[in-house]
Design a binder for these strands. Structure first.
Length: 415
RNA sequence: GCGAUCGUAGCUCAAUUGGUUAGAGCGCCGGUUUGUGGUACCGGAGGUUGCGGGUUCAAUCCCCGUCGAUCGCCCCA
């Protein structure tokens, strides 16, 4: 029978083991700890949703929807989509599960997301994010709290030094419209000097010209009107409250008046924590206030703010976490030792002592395994020990070894 | 979707301007030590050089295609 060719993993997916898995786990654990410090409850939402959940929130028009979502028909003919972000799904749940009663709702989650993109550094088709949202809070204090939490997370991960918080306001609806009109007028004036890409953007998403990388666009983008000149009094006050809160809490930030969001439902605060250590994928954590989103899902006007952070990107930035190691390695020799070894392992593990056993190889091989595992002790069990109802407990570092009755093993190790 | 670079052992990499049997380290297995690790020594297994085609007496090497990876562009909810 001829062998089939082993199926390849899907492009842009990852299999993680060892160091990579360790890094990933450390990011998630740290997030889970910090999120509790801020009173954010864990929320679980589906990995897939009706396509409308994401299509609505993204505004249907962008090619994001048509080209970059994993959408397909299920057997009933309904269009479903693997979630490309957390926010829309959580907003949907907020409406369909009656979570309005908990407003302001502070929730956090993490897990896989899917976007049909060309993989590159820190960018995958199945990727993973941390996510935190406050739904039903119009107060700038919510923005401040979220930013403090993000800042603390990055500090506790030890990456804060290479990362800066860039902050902007997109103003309220009125501000946004006025500014947008001024930008379009400005870019129209310089139509002839813009890159082809930016001419496209001018038609589809003019705000995006502001962060164009094309050198031909830079002078024009840099000379573009500032949002500050169009900020309404309320919008200005809101932004001032956020920055004041950050200053009071000791969170460093930099104004980036050109930081924008493509979608219309974003209002007021927009922010990104960026680094120059990840090539083209410099954003490590980003978010903002999306007061207009829940309406687009058919809900009542509901203020909300949140952020998400790429786990892979954070995992690349952190120092290598300490390896996980066991405390005790059980080394049985011969058939007669199996039962006693099973007993010893069970006793140790039930007592909360991490223990493992080498199954194969000669004694030397098993001792090598025990050594490589980083275990502090080896429990050696051969025919002699079995006959006496004992095991030999070896301190790996001290190279000392002595007999211990099987009943006394746990106590001996706890010392 | 576009561009550039790269695909050799499980992993990291060699292999002279195209030349005979494709090598090393690590890892794995066995042994030196039939019950003792971190070092050391000896031996062994492991390759359709991503895949398909072409040029050539001869291709890991040159050409075309394809798949994949990486980095960038576009996009970035």
């Amino acid at each position: 029978m001829s062998r089939i060719e082993t199926p390849r993993p899907i492009r842009g997916t990852q299999d993680m083991l060892g160091e990579q898995a360790l890094r990933f786990g450390h990011v998630v654990q740290t997030f889970d700890r910090v999120r509790r410090l801020y009173g954010f409850g864990r929320v679980e939402v589906p990995v897939f949703e009706p396509t409308a959940v994401f299509a609505r929130s993204l505004g249907e028009t962008t090619d994001v929807v048509s080209k970059e979502m994993y959408s397909f028909e299920d057997r009933g003919g309904d269009s479903v989509t693997l979630r490309p972000e957390f926010t829309a799904g959580i907003a949907r749940a907020y409406l369909t599960e009656g979570w309005q009663q908990h407003a302001p709702l502070k929730v956090a989650t993490h897990g896989p997301l899917f976007r049909y993109e060309r993989p590159q550094k820190g960018r995958y088709r199945q990727f993973h994010q941390l996510d935190a949202e406050v739904i039903g809070a119009a107060e700038p204090q919510a923005d401040v709290e979220l930013l403090c939490m993000a800042d603390q997370l990055l500090r506790e991960l030890g990456v804060a030094d290479g990362v800066t918080l860039t902050l902007n306001t997109l103003g309220d609806g009125e501000t946004r419209e006025a500014w947008r009109a001024a930008l379009v007028a400005h870019f129209e004036k310089h139509r002839g000097e813009l890159s082809e890409d930016s001419l496209d953007r001018l038609a589809k998403n003019p705000l995006r010209i502001l962060d164009s990388k094309d050198p031909r666009d830079r002078p024009i983008a840099d000379a573009a009107p500032e949002i500050d000149d169009y900020l309404s009094a309320e919008a200005g006050a809101f932004f001032a409250a956020v920055t004041k809160g950050l200053d009071a809490a000791g969170v460093a930030w930099t104004r980036n008046a050109r930081l924008v969001r493509g979608l219309d439902y974003y209002r007021h605060t927009a922010f990104e924590f960026v680094t120059d250590r990840l090539g083209a994928q410099g954003t490590v954590l980003g978010g903002g206030r999306y007061d207009g989103l829940i309406e687009t899902l058919g809900g009542p006007v509901t203020p909300a703010v949140g952020w998400a952070a790429g786990i892979e990107r954070l995992a690349m930035l952190i120092d290598l976490p300490a390896p996980e190691r066991i405390e005790v390695a059980v080394v049985p020799m011969g058939e007669g030792a199996q039962a006693l070894a099973a007993r010893a392992l069970a006793d140790l593990r039930r007592a909360g002592i991490a223990a493992d056993m080498a199954y194969k190889g000669n004694m030397k091989r098993r001792m090598q395994k025990a050594d490589a595992s980083g275990a502090r002790y080896a429990v050696i069990i051969g025919d002699d020990e079995v006959a006496r109802g004992e095991v030999s407990l070896k301190d790996m570092a001290a190279q000392t070894q002595g007999p211990v009755a099987i009943d006394a093993l746990v106590a001996a190790i706890r010392g």
